[in-house]
């Protein structure tokens, strides 16, 4: 499989990375080189092999249903949450107006 410029533009749009024509042109051979190389994986016989799910055998731990049990993962920290906001507005994050 190889990508063309239109595909690169579509992927860039999906990834929300603005790319002008020249950038798309430049990206086409780069992506194709890498994709061509990773495609050798297709040679591997994976019959009956399950995709890896946990790197190290381990199962998911579940947390107790307690509010703010750990201040690092609890709420009530609006100042911290908004501290780096580009456009904090009355306790909200401001973004350009969205039309739904």
């Amino acid at each position: 499989m190889s990508v063309d410029k239109a595909t690169v533009a579509k992927i860039a749009s999906l990834a929300r990375i603005r790319m002008d024509d020249a950038a798309c042109d430049a990206m086409v051979p780069e992506l194709n080189q890498i994709l061509g190389w990773v495609e050798q994986l297709g040679e591997v016989d994976v019959t009956g092999v399950e995709p890896m799910t946990a790197v190290i055998p381990n199962t998911l731990r579940l947390r107790d249903d307690v509010v703010d049990a750990d201040p690092l993962t609890g709420g009530g920290v609006r100042d911290k949450v908004l501290a780096n906001a580009p456009a904090p507005e009355h306790g909200f994050f401001g973004v350009p107006k969205v039309i739904e």
Binding site: V67, D68, R78
Partner: peptide
């Protein structure tokens, strides 16, 4: 995350760093 779920709180007061 450990932030509360109660309805009607002031904006962004029930938001953890995770959320």
């Amino acid at each position: 995350s450990g932030a509360a779920t109660a309805f009607g709180a002031e904006p962004n007061t029930q938001v953890s760093l995770v959320d």
